[in-house]
Nucleic acid binder design. Structure first.
Lengths: 240, 240
DNA sequence: CGATTTAATTGAACGTGTTCAGAAATATGA
DNA sequence: TCATATTTCTGAACACGTTCAATTAAATCG
């Protein structure tokens, strides 16, 4: 006769939530151990103590589990990225802070990140360029927008409007290199990061030079084409 | 008692070769129609009039069929690319020639190219960066090497040694963009090609300027790290 | 409480890429 | 010609991601 209390509602909601979390954690543990491809949904379900159907009740697909990981990562990193941005003042320090923090955060799941960044096919759900990852991508780009915003960098406006997206792209490239960097302690990535960052900052400083005007024009037009809202593309029906 | 004549040997060799070809052609036809993912090996085998096992007798995997296509494409294009290089004299004309020819050649199989270029994961067989595609890649880079060779472009030697590889990379980027360019008549790619090529040529001309020395140094060191022979990476065992 | 609706869970079954033991076809060698 | 090896081919079987009809557990409501 009586209504369930708020606490009860919450706790039952949490039970379902707990199952979901258990499946996710089991999956991530197995992914970490065997890699994404070699892990099976049956294994994951068994490790989580449920039938395989239950895993699909909570996650649309194996890929979707990786998406959930990615999503959660983004949420978990947000506060720290926030602090980093407010504490660092120069563009260099901010970029270094953002990107280094991500390396640190993703280190235990480095291989799993490969399942995400290994595709450039924008019709593949897990591609960093897909519709499915668009929300996360935009969130992430916003951090770079903030990194740029009150920094002293002066760029022609036709290019400036794309700077955050370009820096995000730069970061994706770095992460990609990092995921497949098997040098000891990933020194290659470290060097790459160091030198490319320097180059970018020099380039941004140089970009003010007047004799580069024709390049500015070209670059601006170029970026307009690249980032133009793409016309409707055929939906992939049976992606796996 | 008598030995088979040369002609007979040849014709029986050709019979096996013909089966292989039939399977490849059936596969490509189906890939073109349905796309790579939605095509099944059973379909392909049936279309070629063989059992599915036979397809695997000739090709190690579904991916391997795409590799065979890629390989054949490279062979078929070679003579034309050769002519293009010898007829065009400037770097611009050569690059334009090479790349435009590839667009033309791949046009009927544009989607199939996506199966190749959609991965950046260098451990994935079909990635343009994988060991499996290394031979083809080197062959292809050689064309860019020739495009650069007796052109008038002057670069610091620490960068010049990487130029062909960078131009190859540029081409891969263009092809990737092209594969997923759904604008009408792929105008976006055309514009992108046009403007980026211009920018590259300007950049190469500018690169001689003395005050860019610090950038040269950085860029050279950078490229050394990127193209360094990577240390042994873990082999993927069960790639699909 | 009891009835009914909704949420959660099961596991068999499907279509897929791939493997493999063996059959058929062909080549080889006396 | 005939036995034996080699090449070519078959299709059932396997493991996988995924689906779904059915079942159980939980929530809702009179």
């Amino acid at each position: 006769m009586r209504m369930p209390t708020q606490a009860e509602k919450k706790s039952t909601m949490l039970k379902s939530e707990a199952t979901r979390a258990r499946i996710l954690e089991s999956a991530l543990a197995i992914f970490r151990e065997r890699g994404f491809e070699k892990s099976t949904m049956r294994e994951i379900a068994k490790a989580a103590g449920v039938a395989v159907g239950a895993a699909y009740y909570y996650f649309d697909s194996k890929d979707a589990i990786v998406m959930a990981f990615y999503q959660r990562a983004q949420e978990e990193m947000a506060p720290s990225l926030d602090t980093i941005l407010s504490e660092a003042k120069t563009l260099e320090a901010r970029l270094r802070g953002l990107i280094e923090y991500k390396f640190e955060y993703f280190l235990p799941n480095r291989a799993l990140l490969g399942a995400l960044s290994g595709h450039v096919d924008p019709t593949h759900a897990l591609s960093p360029f897909s519709e499915e990852t668009a929300a996360i991508r935009e969130q992430d780009i916003a951090f770079f927008q903030r990194a740029v915003e009150d920094s002293k960098v002066k760029l022609p406006s036709n290019i400036a409007q794309y700077l955050s997206r370009l820096l995000w792209l730069y970061q994706m490239g770095l992460l990609l290199f990092w995921v497949y960097d098997y040098s000891s302690r990933r020194t290659r990535t470290q060097i790459l990061f160091d030198k490319t960052l320097k180059m970018i900052l020099i380039a941004l400083r140089l970009a003010g030079l007047p004799f580069l005007r024709p390049i500015h024009r070209l670059a601006g037009e170029l970026l307009d084409v690249i980032y133009e809202k793409p016309s409707a593309r055929p939906k992939k029906e049976g992606q796996r």
